[in-house]
C-alpha cells in the first residue's frame, strides 16, 4: 500500500504552517475551479459576466461625471478605472468574506484541513474573476491616454501589498462574523460609506483641505491615490501616503493572522 504517497499528517491537530498549506495547494486549485464553474454554470456568456458589471459601472460614472457634472479632468475614463477597479477588488473580497466560514461549515465540521484555506480560496476566487477586468484596463491603457512611465514597474508590488491588506481584513471579518452574525449587514453599509469617502470618482484635492488629513488616514484613500499615481499621473504620491499604506497592510495582516489562528479552531463549535 501507499506506493508513491508522500507522508502528510492529515489530521495532526498541530499541523499548520506553510508546509502543510503547500500540501493542500491542489485543494485550493480544485476549490477555486469549483466556485468559478458553479457560478457561471449554464450562463451563455460564462466568465464574461465578471466584466459586464464593472463595464456598466464605468460607463455610468463616465456619463455622470463628464457629461452631467462637466468634469474637466483629462482622460477621465482612465482616471476612474484606475481607482474603481481596485475598489471593486477590495469590496468584492470583503463583502464575501463574512460568509466564507459559515458557507463552508459543513466541510469544516467533518474534515480537518488547514482552516486558512477557506479565506485564501475566497480571495483567490475573487482575484481570478477580477483579472479579466484589470487585463482589459492594460489592453486599453494606451487608447485611454495612458503613458509608459517607469513607475508602472511598481504596480505588481503595490498590488501585492494591497492584496495582503485585503486578506488581513478578510481574516478578521470571517472570524468576527461567526461571533456576530449581523456583521455582514454592517459591512455592506461601511463599504457604501467608504466608497464615497474615497476619491474614486472625484479628485482628492476637491476634498476640503481641513478634511484631507483625516481622509488620508483611510487605507483605501492611500491605496487609491497610489494606484492612480501609477496608472494615471505617472508618479507615486507623497512618501507619507506610501508609509500609511504599508503600515495599514502590516497591521491588517498581523492582526488578521493572529485572530484567525487564535480562534479558527474553536469557531468550529459555533458554526
Amino acid at each position: 500500500m501507499a506506493k508513491t504517497l508522500e507522508h502528510i499528517p492529515l489530521s495532526a491537530p498541530s499541523a499548520g504552517g506553510l508546509r502543510s498549506l503547500l500540501a493542500y495547494s491542489d485543494m485550493l486549485r480544485n476549490f477555486v475551479r469549483k466556485d468559478i464553474q458553479v457560478r457561471y454554470q449554464g450562463a451563455a456568456l460564462g466568465f464574461l459576466w465578471s466584466l459586464i458589471n464593472p463595464l456598466v459601472m464605468i460607463g455610468l460614472y463616465v456619463f455622470v461625471f463628464s457629461d452631467v457634472f462637466k468634469s474637466t479632468l483629462p482622460n477621465y475614463p482612465l482616471y476612474l478605472m484606475a481607482g474603481l477597479l481596485h475598489w471593486n477588488l477590495f469590496s468584492q473580497i470583503t463583502g464575501q468574506s463574512c460568509d466564507t466560514l459559515l458557507a463552508n461549515a459543513g466541510l469544516v465540521k467533518k474534515i480537518y484541513f488547514p482552516r486558512l484555506l477557506v479565506p485564501i480560496s475566497s480571495v483567490v476566487f475573487n482575484v481570478v474573476l477580477w483579472l479579466l477586468a484589470i487585463a482589459l484596463l492594460f489592453i486599453l491603457y494606451p487608447f485611454l491616454g495612458g503613458k509608459l512611465h517607469p513607475v508602472l514597474a511598481a504596480y505588481p508590488v503595490v498590488l501585492l501589498f494591497f492584496l495582503a491588506f485585503t486578506f488581513g481584513v478578510t481574516l478578521i471579518l470571517s472570524v468576527l462574523n461567526v461571533l456576530f452574525r449581523d456583521l455582514k449587514h454592517l459591512v455592506d453599509v461601511i463599504l457604501l460609506f467608504l466608497f464615497w469617502v474615497t476619491p474614486i470618482v472625484y479628485q482628492y484635492h476637491r476634498i476640503p483641505p481641513h478634511l484631507r488629513e483625516l481622509f488620508a488616514l483611510s487605507p483605501l484613500v492611500d491605496y487609491v491615490l497610489i494606484f492612480r499615481g501609477i496608472l494615471y499621473s505617472g508618479q507615486l504620491p507623497d512618501w507619507h501616503i506610501l508609509a500609511m499604506a504599508v503600515a495599514w497592510t502590516v497591521a491588517s495582516l498581523a492582526l488578521g493572522l493572529f485572530i484567525f489562528n487564535r480562534y479558527a479552531d474553536s469557531l468550529v463549535e459555533r458554526l
Binding site: I8, L10, A23, Y24, D26, M27, R29, N30, F31, K34, Q37, V38, Q41, G106, L107, K110, I111, F113
Partner: peptide
Amino acid sequence: VGFHPELTGEENVYLNASLYGFR
C-alpha cells in the same frame, strides 16, 4: 463531504480527495 451537486462525478472525486490532503 464537499461533494458539489453541480459538478460531475469525476470532478467531485478530485475535489473530495483533495480535501483529505491528496494531490
